[in-house]
Amino acid sequence: MNDATRNSSLAVPDVTGAERAADGANAGPIIQFKDVHKAFGPKVVLAGVTADIQRRKNTVIIGKSGTGKSVLLKHIVGLLQPDAGEVWFDGQRVDTLSERSLTPIRRRVSFVFQLNALFDSMSVGENIAFPMAQNPRGRRAGRKRINEMVSECLGLVGLAGYESKNPAELSGGEKKRVALARAIAMDPPPDVILYDEPTTGLDPQRSDSINKLIRRLQDTTHATGIIVTHDMRSAAEVGDRILMLNEGRIVADGTPDEIMNSSDDRVRRFVQGEADPDETPG
C-alpha cells in the first residue's frame, strides 16, 4: 500500500483483513534489510544482514541469545539506526527518516517488547488503550469504542476483567499477555506486528495458546508478523518462514520443515539445542 492509497483508506471506517488480503497490488516484501551493519562501541552486533520479510506472512527469527535479534527488530521502526546499509518499510527507506516522519510508519506497526514495556504509571486498561488514544483515528472512534476494544483484547489473551489492575500486580506471564493485548488492540488492526519473544516465561499451555493466537491473528487480519523466539516448537507452529541470525548475519532462511531438517551444522545444533563445540566447557 503506498502512502496515497493508505491515506484515502483512512477515510473509510474500517479496513478489514479480507480487504487487505484482496489488496493484491502490493505483492513485494513489506520489510527489507539491505546489508545492515550495527555496532555498539567496539562490539559488532549486525555484520551485514540482508533479508526480505514477506507481506501477510509470519516470519520467525531464531538465533542464540545476544546475536542481535532484538536489535534487528528495533531497526524496523527506527528505534535504532544502522551504521551502514538500508532498512525499507513498504517501499520507503526508514533508516534516514527523522523521528517525526517515522510516526506514520509506527502507527502501522505494533511492537511487543521483550521486557513488555508496560507503563507502570497506568492501569492495564489504560496501557492497552494508550496506542489507540495516541492515534488520531482511535481518538475519533471515541472512548466507548476504545473501551470495547480493551476488554475484547484482554479476553483474547485470557485476562478478561483485568482492566483496573496495575502492571506491578501481575505475574511475568500476565504482563507478557497484557503486552500482547496492547499490540493487537488497534482498529484497524496493525499491518505489522513485531513480537520479541512473546512466549518466553510462559508455561507450555499458555505458550501454546499464545502461539495459536498469533497464528489466528495472522489468518484473520492478514497482518505481517515477525516473531523472535528461542523456542523451536513455537517457531514451527507460528512461522511460515524461519530466518536464523548467527554472529550478525542471516545464516539460514527457509520453511519450518527446511530449517528443522537443515544440514547446516549451526542450524542443526540450534534446533536440537546442542552446545557449540567452542562453547563446551573443558
Binding site: 505494533s110 507503563f119 507502570d120
Partner: peptide, 14 residues
Amino acid sequence: VTEQILALRTMGAE
C-alpha cells in the same frame, strides 16, 4: 531500562 520509553516512541508519543 524496561523499554517503556522506546514503547512510547513506537506509539507515536514524543
